[in-house]
Amino acid sequence: MSVAVGPRITSPNKLGMWLFLVSDALTFTTLILCYAFVRISSPAWPHPFEFAPGILFATLMTFVLLTSSLTMAAGVGAMREGRRNGAAAWIAATIACGALFIALHLTEWRHLIAMGVTPSANPWGVPLFGAVFFGLTGLHMAHVASGIVYLAILGAGARSGRFSAGDVEVGGLYWHFVDLVWMFLFPLLYLTAVKP
């Protein structure tokens, strides 16, 4: 039984998620500002990303992540209509998109590592490039990876009846946020460092 204690902003679960997302957004914003500082201060920031694989992969990753937001929204919609199996299937599709994103990203990372880029050194003599690139994309990838675990638990629970439509919606908020962060990382890290 729930007791109404004054007007609520939103459900407690959803409020908790929004507050977490605000703090997480501040983390990413601070890191992006550090990147801006370093980049403005560096006389010759490297432009290593060729069309293939760099930009092509990053564009594909953007497509995959945007599509995953669509499948997640479909999952929340199905859950609201009481279609538990449908919701679980859409969440599984979202997980597949997330996994594909990570696979593409790791391929891209391996390509850069093969070129000699590490978090502390690279062939262009701007060590901070690697620190910024792996730091920002690594933190984002960790968010995608934990999102996959979260969605796997959520999908199984949605199917079994342990989780409600509201719970799935809260998971959706997290996933859309991870998508949102990439909307800044893709242009700022890749598109402003295209090989001329």
């Binding site: 959706g172 949102l180 909307m183 242009p187 700022l188 402003t192």
Partner: peptide, 21 residues
């Protein structure tokens, strides 16, 4: 380019927050 890219990024973030979230 940076100005346009940032403007587009904020537009995309706005679309995600309003349409999906």
């Amino acid at each position: 380019m940076l100005t346009v890219l940032l403007a587009l990024s904020f537009l995309k973030a706005g679309a995600i927050v309003t349409r999906f979230m």
